[in-house]
């Protein structure tokens, strides 16, 4: 038999307790190496679409709020086009789409200022609900957790979303919905384990 000669993906390891040294050194208090930390905002002034702010926490299986969690977000522009390498064309030039979000070192509360993304097609062409893709790492997390933030005021889009409707346990869908708390304001907690555990995906 011939040899199947694919390489194996490099195995993951936890980001550990000091991930901010590498990814957000200025925010941590290590200035002078990089002029600015990367991924401070996924949008620039002038980005089209509805400005929104999402705030929340990352909570472990014992109910403790993580203060060492860090996640990255990746989203489309208001028309549902991804910046950079979307085969359908160019995105809003004021949307970079990518952000690094660190929990506050003291309170554990995080905040993301962005625009609400448009709908992106699933591989079969059906539109997915507006969503922000999340990749979350922290001490104790051996492989980055992949999930999505959707929006509880997008009832119609959520109801027909080919990703949300794939979730067999319907009671878990709300764990992916940011709750609208005011004009342009949402709250969203990641629950890593236990009751109301956030849905994480194998992508």
């Amino acid at each position: 038999m011939q040899k199947l000669d694919y390489l194996k993906e490099t195995p993951s390891q936890t980001a550990g307790p000091y991930v901010h040294i590498g990814l957000t050194p200025n925010a941590l208090g290590i200035p002078g190496i990089y002029p600015v930390d990367l991924g401070r905002s996924p949008v620039r002034d002038g980005a089209r679409g509805e400005r929104i702010t999402i705030t929340g926490r990352v909570i472990d299986g014992a109910g403790m709020v993580l203060r060492d969690a860090l996640f990255e977000t990746w989203q489309a522009d208001a028309d549902g086009i991804y910046p950079g390498n979307d085969p359908r064309g160019a995105a809003d030039p004021n949307v970079t789409g990518w952000a690094r979000v660190a929990a506050d070192f003291d309170t554990g509360i995080w905040r993301l200022d962005t625009i609400k993304p448009g709908r992106v097609p699933f591989p079969d062409g059906r539109p997915m609900a507006p969503h922000i893709n999340v990749w979350l790492v922290a001490r104790g997390v051996n492989l980055g957790l992949q999930t999505r933030i959707c929006f509880d005021d997008e009832e119609q889009a959520n109801a027909e979303c080919p990703v949300l409707t794939r979730i067999e346990h319907k009671a878990r869908i709300p764990t992916l919905l940011a709750k609208k708390t005011g004009p342009g304001e949402y709250s969203f907690d990641f629950r890593l384990q236990g009751e109301d555990e956030t849905v994480f995906f194998d992508i």
């Binding site: 936890t14 299986g61 922290a138 104790g140 997390v141 051996n142 890593l192 555990e197």
Partner: peptide, 9 residues
Amino acid sequence: TSMTRAPFR
């Protein structure tokens, strides 16, 4: 640390 930070579902 993984014991309380690992999804169970």
